[in-house]
Amino acid sequence: MGYQIKEEKVFNSGHAACPGCSEALAIRYVVNTLGPDTIGVVPPSCIAIISGPQPLSSMRMPVYQTTLESSAASATGIARALKAKGNDHTKVVVMAGDGGTYDIGFQSLSSAAERNEDFIYVCLDNEGYMNTGAQKSSSTPHLAYTASTPAGKLTPKKNLAEIMVAHRIPYVATATTGYPDDLARKVAKAKEMKGLRFILVLAPCLDGWGLADNAGPKVSRLAVETGVFPLYEVENGERYTLNYGSKGTPVVQYLSLQKRYRHLSQAQVEELQAEANLNWQRLQGKLS
């Protein structure tokens, strides 16, 4: 889409992420786009590890580490206090994992969305509780192996983007680390808006998904090109814009790079292909 990424150096090298980590890449584009006049909120997650142990920090901005279920409420407290102080320039951003967003943090997120609180919520979605050793979350996809679904998860991934769209908040976007310009553009766009802005970033986990150290960006791009994770934006719960979607690439190409799917039978691969097709069709029906 020809977007020129503009970064301010907020996220620093020397952080504690695994080599090749997609999440660290996502954090870079999020905080470097928002700039230093930002306060971060981070629940327990790999993001908390990456942001650094006291007294060190990988980010040149204040970061408040909260409890797993409280990110949106904690961000609300900061946003309201800034408003009470007459500060209309400092941005507040949550960076939380899928466990802290889809599961235990969903109640406070839904409530903050309903109140249209003034902050940006970025969910760095690696489709499981990867920081505790890869257990399933409600973001884990159908049939994927995790430590708590050794035979493969029996139910589909929760469609959180659409749930957030249903809150009719000003901005919902999906993004992924294989498309850094698209991710940075969405953060920059959200930065200029008010109210609750929600960005769902698919961030492949090398360890949890069973990927080669250099496979993060490739898997991320395949998630989009196969139609498993299309990139789109929705404004005010209605106006859908597709950024990148299925190129008709078979889903098996996405699955075969990941050890979490290596137990699948041919029939199961076909089942996941059919599901991806159906989800892609449903999304297209919403595009105006």
Binding site: T66, G77, S108
Partner: peptide, 18 residues
Amino acid sequence: AESEHSAMSACITASLTG
């Protein structure tokens, strides 16, 4: 808030924001 848990969570950060 939607719960006392969230109310207290927001109290903490608002207080820490000064």
